[in-house]
């Protein structure tokens, strides 16, 4: 039976069925490439075959793909260079949880409720990652978010999803909630809330590419020695004595996993007490060094170099703009 497409008027030159999948490969690719972002997104939601067509041609210029985990659902923001698309996928508290019936999408020129092609939350999350070819940035930032949510279900739907960054601001990150983070294991994790000793230790032993801890969470030398993250950022203060002890232990091969440390530091340059009893080399007063931190190239001066037992060198400096004590292990790439 023929049908009249939605929104068309009687007598209008309307478009009827067209066997897209029977087109020659080059033509099918051409058609897909000619769809604008909104239609490309909608087309990708038609079926897995359509998704394949889209992913074979679509290389979006994307700033980021984020997901905010909320009590009633997942809020995605697809930040393209020229427009933002917001997607909301609700979840229910049925046991076992069922796939969402609708996907709510907000395009720049209006909102649409799209029927879910019977995909689970897990598949929908992967769908966005595949179509937009991007790892996720996750957020948990409101009290209402996590309380009442089936954590097991969240762990299930996010397990194996690639998160390049995850920020947890509020509510408290308990050991129970930590299970979610451990099942996601993002590359960068920023728990912006205070952490109990148990949770702090739990996070420190994970192999993050970057972990940021904030006061009032306390971080002592013992914590630093068990850290498995490659980069550790901390906005708390360490005394010169603490740093002196750490550098001595590092020279003696303690915690060789850490490659970068960025801690708050009050002064503009390193106090000599930090290097008391430590053989080191000082960069000339006119010299400077370019290093890349957080994807940004910065210039540091008054750099001091120390040498580990196995011959690996590390540079220690203060980046005055950020008031940060910087410790970077020098390898071939740095």
């Amino acid at each position: 039976m023929r049908f009249r497409p939605y929104g068309s008027q009687v007598g209008e030159d309307v478009v009827f069925e067209f066997p897209f999948l029977n087109l020659p490969e080059k033509a099918a690719k051409n058609v897909t490439r000619m769809l604008d972002t909104e239609n490309m997104f909608i087309f990708s939601l038609c079926s897995r075959v359509c998704r394949k067509h889209v992913t074979s041609v679509y290389r979006p210029a994307l700033r980021f793909l984020s997901v905010a985990i909320e009590r009633r659902g997942l809020n995605f923001k697809i930040a393209l260079n020229n427009q933002d698309i917001f997607v909301y996928i609700g979840y229910n508290r049925m046991n076992p949880p069922a796939p969402p019936y609708w996907i709510q999408v907000k395009f720049p020129n209006g909102e649409k409720h799209l029927r879910n092609p019977n995909w689970s939350h897990r598949e929908l999350i992967r769908h966005f990652m595949r179509v937009f070819n991007q790892e996720l940035v996750g957020f948990v930032s409101r009290e209402s978010i996590i309380s009442g949510v089936n954590l097991n279900y969240l762990c299930h739907i996010f397990k194996g999803s690639k998160f390049k960054d995850f920020q947890w601001s509020y509510p408290e990150l308990t050991s129970e909630r930590c299970r979610l983070i451990n099942s996601i294991l993002p590359k960068k994790f920023n728990p912006r809330c205070g952490l109990s000793t148990e949770v702090k230790r739990n996070l420190l032993i994970q192999h993050y590419e970057s972990l940021s801890l904030y006061t009032p969470t306390k971080l002592n030398l013992d914590d630093l020695l068990v850290t498995n993250a490659t980069e550790l950022n901390y906005n708390g203060f360490w005394t010169d004595k603490d740093w002196n002890r750490f550098l001595k232990l590092w020279i003696g091969m303690a915690n060789i996993r850490v490659k970068t440390l960025k801690f708050f530091y009050g002064g503009n340059q390193i106090d000599d007490d930090v290097f008391r009893g430590i053989p080191h080399r000082i960069m000339g007063p006119e010299e400077s060094k370019e290093i890349v931190l957080d994807g940004e190239s910065i210039t540091v001066r008054n750099v001091r170099f120390i040498l580990r037992k196995d011959g690996v060198e590390a540079m220690v400096s203060v980046y005055s703009r950020w008031h940060q004590f910087i410790f970077v292990v020098c390898d071939d790439e740095s």
């Binding site: 929104g7 067209f18 239609n39 038609c46």
Partner: peptide
């Protein structure tokens, strides 16, 4: 053919493009 997709939902698009 691409113009046929303008303003459609996935369900409508499935019918227009005969997508299983």
């Amino acid at each position: 053919v691409a113009n046929m997709a303008q303003g459609k939902t996935p369900a409508q698009l499935r019918r227009v493009y005969l997508l299983p």
